[in-house]
Design a protein around this nucleic acid. Structure first.
Length: 276
DNA sequence: CGCCAGGCTTCTA
DNA sequence: TAGAAGCATGGC
């Protein structure tokens, strides 16, 4: 991205390639962004409020100075990675090529590790609108108030709560998982800070020490919050798509960027309501 | 009413 | 070791 300018208190990326904010923020990897119309999304991430807008192929980060953009959002939106090259490299397979073209504007977000972990604990056996509702209530009730809304509550802020305290967020059977995760992260039983630098298999085992975290949730947390781009979460949509497209096989499981490919397939399958 | 949702734990054979 | 039941909640 070398077409970035700063004007009128906004950072603007002109002619952005492989970056569509609707595809990126509304494809089920993050749950706190709101589409408020006119190509504008608002949300809170990394402890900050952001209003971001897409007009054709220009992306506007409103009320953002260059330092904040470079230190926070560049990394969050994974903007220093060459996605067109990755797409080029997987286009030997016609199905992958088609899925990647369809979701070409997706970026894999690098969210806060704890937020990603906790969010995908909440996601299990759940649907996206309700996941968003539960996370909204969790933040409003237990997160710190900041300009524009509420932060995602820290592990420490949740670890001191009881199951009854969590009742108002209506997370169902997942409440006990949230509490166990918060406790194990805040007391160092699970060291989230070390997970980004561990091999994916070791990192997965570490995360699965948490009650209620299995392979799928661990892989989502690693992919969307810890920089493990090779993690390949297998949810119901992916399993369906693999059956339909690849007869159940997985041509790309061990690729370096398997997680990005996974997201193209997920997006394609879900948008087209792939049936078994 | 029944079924399902970006699954996991527990029980059963 | 594989397969199914149970789990909270809400939308359809």
């Amino acid at each position: 991205m070398n077409n970035i300018v700063y004007k009128n208190n906004a950072v603007v990326i002109h002619n952005a390639d492989c970056f569509n904010i609707s595809q990126t923020l509304d494809c089920g990897q993050a749950f706190r962004w709101k589409n408020i119309g006119d190509g504008i999304f608002t949300g809170i991430a990394m402890g900050r409020f952001l209003k971001i807008q897409q007009i054709n192929s220009d992306i506007i980060f409103h009320d953002t100075d260059p330092d904040t953009f470079n230190e926070v959002w560049l990394k969050y939106f994974d903007l220093d990675r060459n996605y067109s090259e990755i797409i080029e490299n997987i286009s030997y397979d016609p199905v992958l090529k088609k899925a990647a073209q369809y979701g070409r504007g997706i970026r894999i977000l690098r969210q806060d590790p704890w937020e990603a972990l906790c969010s995908f604990i909440i996601s299990q056996n759940n649907n996206i609108p309700r996941i968003k509702g539960i996370i909204d209530r969790l933040c409003e009730k237990f997160g710190k108030k900041i300009d524009g809304g509420y932060n995602f509550p820290t592990p420490e802020e949740i670890a001191c709560l009881s199951l009854e305290d969590l009742m108002p967020i209506r997370s169902g059977f997942r409440a006990k998982y949230i509490l166990d995760a918060a406790k194990k992260v805040s007391d160092g039983t699970v060291k989230l800070g070390d997970i980004a630098s561990k091999p994916t298999n070791e990192a997965r085992e570490e995360l699965m020490k948490i009650y209620g975290v299995g392979e799928k949730v661990a892989d989502c947390a690693m992919l969307y919050g810890m920089g493990h781009l090779d993690a390949f979460p297998k949810d119901v949509w992916i399993k369906r798509a693999l059956k339909v497209f690849f007869d159940g096989g997985m041509p790309i499981e061990n690729e370096k960027y398997a997680g990005i490919i996974q997201q193209y397939i997920f997006f394609y399958a879900r948008e087209n309501k792939i049936e078994i």
